[in-house]
Design a protein around this nucleic acid. Structure first.
Lengths: 228, 228
DNA sequence: CTGGTTATTATGTCTGCACATATTCACCCT
DNA sequence: AGGGTGAATATGTGCAGACATAATAACCAG
């Protein structure tokens, strides 16, 4: 029974799955489908639009809608605040601020943030603990200009959470990679040198200025997983 | 100037960014915003819906719309077919099928695919090359029941691409992690034992049956990046 | 044949209206 | 007070119709 755009989306997906409509082939126009399902064109449009967004369909004006030839799988990840992440595992979160000082940013970080090399920024080194054991080693470059005059006490609240609560919502980019533990990381995380760490790097800007660049090194066993 | 739902989305985002609307606070109703912008409510709805989908807003019937308190950052990744990924880097893709035989699945894989342990499945070992150099080492468990009678020649077309083209569109889950190269991986990828590799694991099912479990080990320097 | 112009067509979006649905709030009865 | 009940309300979804836009097809002139 057709009721609502979601059931239309399901039916279209079903036809693709059972290969009624083959990859690369055009499917009927919105108007035809609307007539077939007995709904308005806008409803079909909504269903097809969602499927296109998911990468199942490809749509072009005038050319029509076709089943994606190589359905690029689009996975969405949720990146929670570290404390939430630890607590979601039923563990106790704590952190230690190892270092907090002004330093000139090195070239690679400067270029990613879009600032001049050697600009002085705040450098924070933090170790996150789960049930008292090392969970993640965070190194962060923070634009000092965005801080209020009595700067927040980052030994009491993690920079991560302070930023989320006090700096306007922003977009940035995220990258994942793997790297062997450098001597410092090995020492702090309590692992062997060269041990494989999972690295997350995030860069965030506000509308006008760079805010922060974070690098998180997660110990062995850590994994990032998609929802469904 | 307000023209189209995208400019409304931009304006709402701007107000959040400049802290006109603070995290956790309610924003005006669709009707009010529609009047303010001089558009129909459906147009405002479209803009707000997209922002809610992106995790910037939280909406509830009757309760209204509020700015997300902890903007759970939702990153969307595109997982292309390996060949596309290599070619997008301007390199030449090739692959070598190292092994292809029936084997009983080990317990961890069986549990993730939801089949009985020791079920015989097809085991494929493939090395992907970029410009002739090792790019990724793929190990895959494949449900033989989904293959046509004259099984495809996986030395000619990679299992990856054959599946995309010939098996109905499916959903699965994806996980990223880091691991040190085991002896076999070190040999095949041409890296030192224990060197940090970036691991991608994917599990896919069709509507009724498990299809495949893939593990990809990427060499040093590989990174997964979000769009924008 | 070639190159450029025009018509056609499917999707993209908007409007104005209506009703559905999930919450919440206020009220009333005990 | 307390707890259940129903009205109020903001969002979710639907419809029909209209125009905008982009990509293609058809056409025509040179």
């Amino acid at each position: 029974m057709i009721r609502g755009w979601e059931s239309i989306r399901a039916e279209v997906l079903r036809r693709i799955r059972v290969r009624d409509w083959l990859p690369g082939a055009s499917i009927p126009t919105e108007e035809v489908l609307a007539a077939e399902f007995g709904v308005a064109r806008a409803t079909v449009n909504r269903a097809l639009r969602e499927l296109a967004q998911a990468g199942v369909l490809e749509r072009k004006r005038r050319a029509g809608t076709r089943v994606a030839l190589l359905p690029v799988r689009r996975a969405t990840l949720e990146i929670p605040v570290i404390r939430q992440e630890v607590e979601a595992r039923g563990q106790l979160h704590a952190f230690r601020l190892l270092c907090c000082e002004k330093r000139p940013v090195p070239v690679p970080v400067a270029s990613r943030l879009g600032v001049a090399a050697l600009t002085p920024m705040l450098w924070l080194e933090t170790l996150h603990l789960a049930d008292g054991r090392p969970f993640a080693y965070e190194t962060r470059w923070l634009n000092p200009l965005i801080l209020p005059d009595p700067a927040p006490d980052f030994t009491a609240i993690s920079a991560n959470e302070w930023l989320v609560a006090h700096v306007s919502y922003t977009l940035g980019d995220i990258a994942f990679s793997a790297a062997g533990a450098c001597p410092r990381e090995a020492e702090v995380m309590g692992v062997a040198q060269g041990e494989a760490l999972f690295i997350t790097e995030r860069c965030t800007w506000s509308a006008d200025a760079p805010i922060t660049f974070v690098r998180l090194a997660h110990g062995p066993g850590y994994r990032v997983q998609t929802l469904v």
